[in-house]
Design a protein around this nucleic acid. Sequence first.
RNA 1: GCUCCCUUCGUCUAGUGGCCUAGGACGUCGCCCUCUCACGGCGAAAACAUGGGUUCGAGUCCCAUAGGGAGCGCCA
Length: 468
Amino acid sequence: MIVRTRFAPSPTGSLHLGNIRTALFCWLYSRNRGGEFILRIEDTDQERSTQEATQSILDSMNWLGLDYDAGPFYQAKRLDHYRSVAERLIEAGLAYRCYCSKEKLAEQREQQLANKEKPRYDGCCRGQNLPENKEQAFVIRFKNPQEGSVEFEDQVLGSLSFQNSELDDLIIIRTDGFPTYNFCVVVDDLDMKITHVVRGADHVNNTPRQINIFRAFDAEPPIYAHVPTILGNDGKKLSKSHGATGILQYRDDGFLPEAILNYLVRLGWSHGDQEIFSRDEMIKLFDIKDINKAAAAFNPEKLLWINRHYIKTLDPQVVASYLAPQMQALKIDYSEGPALSEIVVTLRERVETLREMAVKSRCFYEEFANYQEDAKKYLNPEITAFLQATRHRIDILTAWTDENLHQVIEDIAKQFELKLGKVAQPIRVAVTGTIVSPPLNITLRLLGKRRVLGRIDKALSYISDIIN
RNA sequence: GCUCCCUUCGUCUAGUGGCCUAGGACGUCGCCCUCUCACGGCGAAAACAUGGGUUCGAGUCCCAUAGGGAGCGCCA
């Protein structure tokens, strides 16, 4: 039997970390088993589904490299199919038309809640076998078994059992003729021959209803695996409605897809003490059986740590390709000056995100307007002499290398009988305008002779200005 | 209210009855390295929710309690 999983988001907003982790687990399982992974867009809610959301789902999957073997399938394109299936269910006596008004139902619900009962449909139209009446609005309800129980073995949670008496007759076709979630899921999972349903634990309570529908079709339900929800770093649920960050925002903020995936795979899943997993390792080692039952809280610091890890260890050329859009977003023209891969190599140990890297790279491509406030104190008359000497040494330097530039700084320190730090820091301020930068010799090399000399001149005139 | 689920350091987790004096990672703190910032190295503090069982022996099995979560839609 070939394993076939699906990720089935509804296009009512952008995908967040919780959704993506579910997609990842789904994808990993199918890849691990050499199976197929299907993308299905559940857009039966005409009110809330949007084209933008659909596009952002596609973009997100693409960015993370979660490729699918079939789809995307759109439920909105299969409406006639769902309707005819529902009609067949009525003919078979497994579903029925219900003419109860929304108002009546709402009232009933309120009443039940007031009586501290579980709100549920009372089955008023069940068994009446009401014919189609075009004059009056009706829905189609599934005839849920009233006795016995539904039991199934969840791959994450273990064996679960629900009494049918707890379940009511759910609506499968609305008044407007659109099918509802629990119905479409079953029809599609069946049609698409899904073998394993890996989804969020918020669907656990839907599962017995869906299994009953499978049974009505005389079909075997798929194997279920409900993965626990992800909580925000405040311990509260992470969800669209609580303003969870869309995954593409992480891309824009300078996170690597490798980091997002690695972070997410370790949330609720583990393989001993291993923290770092390449895509291939995840695929090779992943198993649903190793998913934890408890909900995990999102920890932004650890995501940052993993992001740094990948910035530091991935091929600089690859990181540079991710950096380019960040440079563009900041409108930094990097067509002249150091290659982006050089920037990556020098800045990768001092940033947490690519955005930060882009920001810090600015001084290699553009002149700065002002010295930072805390840097100004280094530019005083006492440094004029060695700054001038430094300028001269650099001016006559023929081979522009890290070694030579380091030698220049050391020589100047020796010549003026100063500690290395005492000369390095003022020079750093002169050429970068700030008190923090990569090692000075490397900074100088990246800036290039023309920029270095220009900035030293600028610092010298700044100093003479404050004297006068 | 009812149904279902969950519970190891602040956080992610290892742990499948003796290997646990509970291990690793992020974060935090300290020290070392050092031209700044970092990287790196070394070290420290930090957890089995509570109470009962079962057992020679329980973080590990069972039961209660407490706490947390999800669902109870003509949303998905």
